[in-house]
């Protein structure tokens, strides 16, 4: 059987490392960086992950039929700015889904870079750095998981799969990977030339409305408030009853309409 990678037409900026199965594409990418075998633009792709993971060690359900890819990025900047590439990856997927999904499909972003289809999470991005023992920033690993054929049913935020949101024949992972890589390249080039501002503008057209009630789960507390803005470095600005807070970590949930306004922090 021909491996799908054979027929994949990627921009020359990328170098594809295709696998049938891996424990985790981010782990394999880290191994390659450590072995000095992964330049900027390396894509580690697997048909399935046996130990796929999300943020904070949460498992990422990774059966065949979904997309699991990690991009190795070596941007010419510090870690703080490199984090903005997560937005480029999410925006690229929004572009692709605009072409791929039926016209009435609602494609939205949830801060910072979760992609929602018809209100349910369809993709997640896991960003990890590789830092040398002397503190040198080596690479950013951008793991992208897209639920195409399957999605878990037991997640804190409801999940869905692309196939469940559209009629027609099954989408193969490579049909998503190639256009995503194209769009991601466009957004990263844009970011290199013009900075974060154009990404932020585009993000705001697909994300929260000012005033929308959000609940953000932080490692040791919860913040309730209304969405104010995303700042020029990607931080979430939220108005709480204690004033405005800028968040750079946390899981966003949409507060139920009946929830008490400004109920403070847990």
């Amino acid at each position: 059987m021909t491996h799908p990678a054979r027929t994949l037409d990627l921009p020359p900026a990328y170098r594809l490392r295709a696998h049938d199965a891996l424990p985790s594409t981010n782990d394999e990418a880290r191994r390659l960086v450590r072995a000095q075998d992964a330049g900027h633009g390396t894509l580690v792709w697997a048909q399935e992950q046996t130990a796929g993971r999300g943020r904070r060690g949460r498992s990422w359900t990774s059966p065949r039929g979904n997309l699991y890819v990690t991009a190795v990025l070596r941007p010419n900047c510090g870690i703080g700015e490199a984090a903005q590439l997560g937005f480029a990856a999410a925006l690229a997927l929004v572009d692709v889904l605009g072409d791929l999904m039926p016209q009435q499909t609602q494609v939205r972003l949830k801060w910072p870079n979760d992609v929602l289809v018809n209100g349910r999470k369809v993709a997640g991005i896991l960003l990890e750095t590789v830092v040398d023992s002397d503190g040198t920033f080596q690479a950013l690993l951008l793991g992208l998981g897209v639920n195409i054929a399957e999605a878990p049913s037991d997640t804190a935020f409801p999940a869905t799969a692309l196939q469940w949101e559209r009629a027609g024949r099954a989408i193969r992972p490579e049909e998503l990977l190639a256009p995503w890589a194209e769009h991601f390249l466009v957004w990263t080039n844009r970011w290199e030339q013009d900075g974060f501002a154009p990404l932020r503008r585009r993000w705001l057209t697909h994300a929260h409305r000012p005033g929308q009630r959000l609940r953000v789960r932080l490692p040791n507390r919860e913040v309730h408030g209304s969405f104010h803005d995303m700042d020029d470095r990607g931080g979430l600005l939220i108005d709480t009853n204690r004033g405005r807070e800028r968040l750079s970590v946390g899981d966003v949930f949409f507060a139920e309409p009946g929830a008490a306004p400004g109920s403070g922090q847990g």
């Binding site: 943020r55 870690i79 703080g80 490199a82 984090a83 903005q84 997560g86 910072p112 870079n113 896991l126 960003l127 990890e128 750095t129 830092v131 950013l140 470095r233 990607g234 931080g235 750079s248 970590v249």
Partner: peptide
């Protein structure tokens, strides 16, 4: 963790 990036 900073800006959703995990930095070991």
């Amino acid at each position: 963790e900073a800006m959703k990036v995990m930095n070991p």
